[in-house]
Simulated assay, not measured.
Amino acid sequence: MNKILALLLLGSLLGGCQSDTSAQTDAMVGLRCWHYRDQESLSREMLDYIRRQGEAGNPMCQTLLATLYERGHGVVQDTARARALYLSQTQANPGAYYHLGRLDEQEADYLRARDHYQRAAAAGSRESALALARLMEEGKGGPQDLPGAQQLYFSVLKQSGDDAWKGIDRLRGHGLELNAEQQARYNQVWTASARSRLSRKLRLLQHRTLGKLKLGPDVKPAVVEVRFVPGSAEPRLKLLESSGDTPLDQTILQALGSYRFVGEPIPQAGQDDWRVKAHIDPHAR
């Protein structure tokens, strides 16, 4: 934490006249509150600092203070006080309506929850869009709107297996079909996610496993085909080019064998699988 504060302070000094002193102070105060949020127990000094800065209007400290009142962590639980603090942030940050929506749901006031989630979602809150889509999917707080929920899920879809992906899959399970554009987007996200996760797996293999081995100068890069077959999260692996070292090849195949696909793309005409070549250079660092 001290290192982070030092870097932030250095950045402020280097910024010179281009930085606003008040903004710098707010950032430092907010960073300190952000650090306190991870503490299992809060000292009286911490609580006094959070309360003083939160009541003074620092957004980060204000949010933390509201959360403490909501959960009764370090203070007497006071949902009304938490709600008032969240509400006080909405003018400067409409995304804070998300917290009000959560409180509404806890009180089973789904109509008001929809309204608050809608306000936050319109301001770019992904969590609110997901929560609003779920209420629309379940028909809580208003009429059930499966196409509308589907559209919202797609608007915040980031990768296969995330909450938006799961929402889309639930709706597909209820018989809601995807149009051509949505199918393309769905498959595009799945492919990008598969490649990203595979790249992460290869980086770990490179640094945690291969980087510790003593390899001879004759060892060459290996090429492995990673293939997805519908109905199985486990990849089909095929060694296309050997490294010239059989034990090393087996180490690479064993490591890649633990990779798993998340979700499945929608089958397209003439395509029943997905495959990519993974290049592994044992000498790379």
Score class of each variant (00 low, 15 high):
residue 137 E to F: 00
residue 21 T to N: 13
residue 35 H to D: 10
residue 91 Q to T: 12
residue 195 R to I: 13
residue 118 Q to M: 00
residue 188 Q to I: 02
residue 258 S to E: 15
residue 119 R to G: 04
residue 88 S to Q: 01
residue 188 Q to T: 09
residue 194 A to C: 10
residue 18 Q to H: 09
residue 261 F to T: 13
residue 75 V to L: 01
residue 146 L to M: 15
residue 225 E to K: 13
residue 231 G to Y: 04
residue 219 V to W: 04
residue 23 A to T: 12
residue 75 V to I: 03
residue 7 L to N: 15
residue 191 T to H: 07
residue 29 V to I: 15
residue 53 Q to G: 06
residue 272 D to Q: 14
residue 232 S to L: 01
residue 279 H to Y: 06
residue 175 G to N: 01
residue 11 G to P: 00
residue 214 K to N: 08
residue 274 W to N: 13
residue 254 Q to H: 07
residue 10 L to P: 03
residue 16 G to Y: 03
residue 12 S to I: 07
residue 190 W to A: 06
residue 252 I to C: 01
residue 260 R to M: 10
residue 211 G to M: 01
residue 240 L to T: 06
residue 200 R to P: 12
residue 101 G to F: 00
residue 268 Q to N: 12
residue 283 H to Y: 01
residue 284 A to M: 13
residue 47 L to N: 10
residue 266 I to N: 09
residue 277 K to R: 15
residue 18 Q to G: 12
residue 143 P to W: 07
residue 216 G to H: 00
residue 159 Q to C: 05
residue 51 R to G: 10
residue 22 S to A: 15
residue 276 V to S: 09
residue 250 Q to T: 04
residue 12 S to R: 06
residue 51 R to T: 14
residue 222 A to W: 00
residue 169 D to F: 02
residue 61 C to F: 02
residue 28 M to T: 09
residue 37 R to V: 06
residue 18 Q to Y: 04
residue 262 V to P: 08
residue 110 Y to L: 00
residue 164 A to T: 04
residue 51 R to Y: 05
residue 228 F to G: 11
residue 149 A to C: 10
residue 101 G to C: 01
residue 107 E to Y: 04
residue 182 Q to G: 12
residue 99 H to N: 14
residue 285 R to C: 12
residue 99 H to D: 08
residue 208 R to W: 04
residue 252 I to G: 03
residue 162 D to F: 02
residue 115 D to Y: 04
residue 101 G to T: 05
residue 176 L to Q: 06
residue 25 T to W: 09
residue 90 T to F: 02
residue 183 Q to V: 13
residue 92 A to F: 01
residue 39 Q to I: 05
residue 197 R to S: 14
residue 45 E to S: 14
residue 239 L to Q: 00
residue 160 S to V: 05
residue 44 R to L: 15
residue 272 D to N: 14
residue 104 D to Y: 03
residue 130 L to C: 07
residue 226 V to I: 13
residue 94 P to G: 11
residue 283 H to A: 10
residue 37 R to D: 06
residue 45 E to K: 13
residue 185 R to K: 11
residue 100 L to A: 08
residue 269 A to H: 10
residue 152 L to M: 13
residue 215 L to K: 06
residue 120 A to G: 05
residue 71 R to K: 14
residue 93 N to P: 06
residue 25 T to C: 10
residue 146 L to E: 15
residue 149 A to T: 08
residue 162 D to L: 03
residue 21 T to R: 15
residue 233 A to I: 03
residue 44 R to C: 13
residue 26 D to C: 07
residue 163 D to G: 02
residue 236 R to G: 05
residue 204 L to S: 15
residue 190 W to G: 00
residue 65 L to N: 05
residue 188 Q to R: 10
residue 106 Q to A: 08
residue 74 G to T: 01
residue 187 N to C: 04
residue 261 F to N: 14
residue 107 E to D: 08
residue 278 A to T: 05
